[in-house]
Design a protein around this nucleic acid. Sequence first.
DNA 1: AGCACGCCGACT
DNA 2: GTCGGCGTGCTC
Length: 837
Amino acid sequence: MYAKVIVDVPAKQTNRAFDYEVPASLSKWVEVGSRVGVPFGPRVLQGFVVELQEETQVDVTRIKPIQNVLDLVPPLTEELVSLGRWVSRVYLCHEVTALQAMLPAALKAKYERAIGVGEESGEQSLLDMSDLQEIVSFVKSKGSVSMDALMERFASDGALIKQLLSAGILTEVQVVKDRMNTKKALTVFPPAGGSGLEEALAELPARANKQQDVLRYLMEHPHAIRLTELMETVEVGASTVKSLADRGWIELREVEVMRDPYAGRAFTRTKPLPLTEEQSSVFAEIRDAVAEERNEVFLLHGVTGSGKTEVYLQSIQQCLDMDKEAIVLVPEISLTPQMVERFKGRFGDLVAVLHSRLSNGERYDEWRKIMRKQVKVVIGARSAIFAPFTRIGLIIIDEEHESSYKQEESPKYHTRDVAVQRAKQQNAVVVLGSATPSLESIEKTRRRRDRDKPPFRLLTMRERVASRPMPPVAIVDMREELKNGNRSMFSRSLYKAIEDRLQKKEQIVLLLNRRGYATFVMCRTCGFVSQCPHCDISLTYHQSSRMLRCHYCGYAEREVTQCPSCQSEHIRHFGTGTQRVEEELSKIFPGIRVIRMDVDTTTEKGSHEKWLTMFREKQADVLLGTQMVAKGLDFPDVTLVGVIAADTVLNLPDFRSAERTFQLLTQVAGRAGRHEKQGEVFVQTYTPEHYSVQYASRHDYIAFANHELDIRANLGYPPYQRLILVTFSHEQVPLLVRSAEAFVTRLKEIAFTYRAQQVDLFTNTLSTDQSFQMDVLGPVASPISRIKDRYRFQCVVKYRGEDQAAEIVAKAVAWFEERSAKEKLLISVDVDPQYLM
DNA sequence: AGCACGCCGACT
DNA sequence: GTCGGCGTGCTC
């Protein structure tokens, strides 16, 4: 038996499967998806088995055996292995990188040196000594032992061990280990049925009160119990229990336990809520698709507050009734305790939660619950799409338009597209939910190619539950405010509204759209702005540490009080940071209680949750923050939402900026008046006439989408054409420009050949897609033209058609890497980029 | 990514 | 005459 193995070396030359022999002793354990240790050149590496075969084409004398198998159960399924291949092909990354992304960090390989028995047995005469024989057979019995363990076992024989090593009887080997240890806990095991405990009780001396208590407790509860728990309930010390174990009456041993991040938290169980008419008809569609196991993608367009979550919950129930599994994806930022609570409340212990705030150990344990089929539902961010389920019935992506679904490091996958692919593989249903669907998705519900039906099906919920109206949105023209002499960041109408709510003791959410509004430091005399010496970007001021930092390379310097350029002392912090809004609020409304949520105040674990709870409990009047206050929060007493500056995103040089502005305004407007009290929204802007502001104020998604789709069609942007961003970097500009230009020329050549042949490079068959068309823009300097002392150039590949372009770009990249490897030129490819920078 | 093999300058 | 520079190529 032979195995094809992808080794843990993310490099171009090793980006293929290598053949290994499966030794008979391991054949039981080696499966597709197994993690194995394999000899690779002079060392031992971790690898993934991607195929098993009886025969091999490789010269048998070169084939080495698999050294060991790292897990009892393969951590990847066959289906995930092929999904990995798909990801690597579509997003142009090494196959290991894709496979690695599917596993918790705990399973990243750790390489360790250890002692094993040498191959040539060296000076056999040494083995006559019995001490040495003992050592050798000890090592032999274990396969390999770490040096520490060996020294501990044979502490007095250090010299002998050294001798054995130099004689080659023992030798240093490399082993692949897991990074993560399972957590163990001492557990007490009473004899089955509690038999013999009564006799034990009789044997104890009368004054051994504590031991008697333990025995009595165990007679009443004759099942295994954690030592710590037993000590707490019976109020005894560990020694008491240990002495019982020493006499053999009970057993005490280490048992692997799961770290449960939600341990000790009671979740109130909830029952399905009655659905509104709209909800039921949407639910019926999804339920039928799940019940019939149709591979279908729904785009659920439901206004904020229309009760999408309840539809999700009941759809999942349908899945569970069929003994199938469900994956729920939410943006990291809205994976709040409230959200978790709703799912745990409905499905209890059948839910695993995966998010970035878990420790590696906790995440590993949640992941193992999925592996072991202890759970049926996973709720998590991005990477939860790779949950090792085997019977997926339903995949839900909430807030599907969120750009955080795109991973920014390799593999640069888009979760939505991976979900659609995975659902195809498992014949599952996908539900994409949003109040402001991405233009990519809405276009897919309309697209008709030939006579095929559109790839996605649109479901709509227009009504909020309990028929609460959408809050009125007032657009405030800040130019007018300025003309009327108001130079503060609050317009007169927002000021009055805040004053009014404070008086009524109702709550306020204020949103500051900070992207592009970082707090930089400028000299008011000469205009000097502190720049990063290694990157082409201004430094950002951090109040907490009083430092200026570069967000790209981490460079930091002390805050300046005197201009380095003109020695003036008129240094000012620019940009409307949340801190400044907070300061101004307290100045205008003395005594106002403000909770500020931004990167500075929410880095600490659990702080996000803490602030929200405080706000919910009405310990503050205002929740002030960046994007994170806009998402999915639901506070009954919020009746006023204010957007301080709506158009900061609009001015960014990005074709998606109108879409992002519309989404943000719509999401934040949805925070107001979700309960009995009527809400009100103020949007302050310098461009009130802009269509994204206008449509958002009218809560008119469809009109916005139509308008924006027209623009995209005219400019040839997604969703009508797709993009691939290729970035080059090098320390020297002339070489960089020459290379980037050479790449573009080569890329065009390859594309031309492809078009001439009309051959599908994936399958090597004649292409059926006659409409394929590709265009290359650039190369031009990247918007951030230097990072870490390397200059950056980029080109944008625009194309129509499906995934062939990735293959063409891959060919050009391979050509480029081959010819420029020695020059340390770096090239990076982003398929379907979210930002062109 | 490592690591070894392999051809040209400053040294015991 | 050697030791070592890192360019090139391989790893089942």
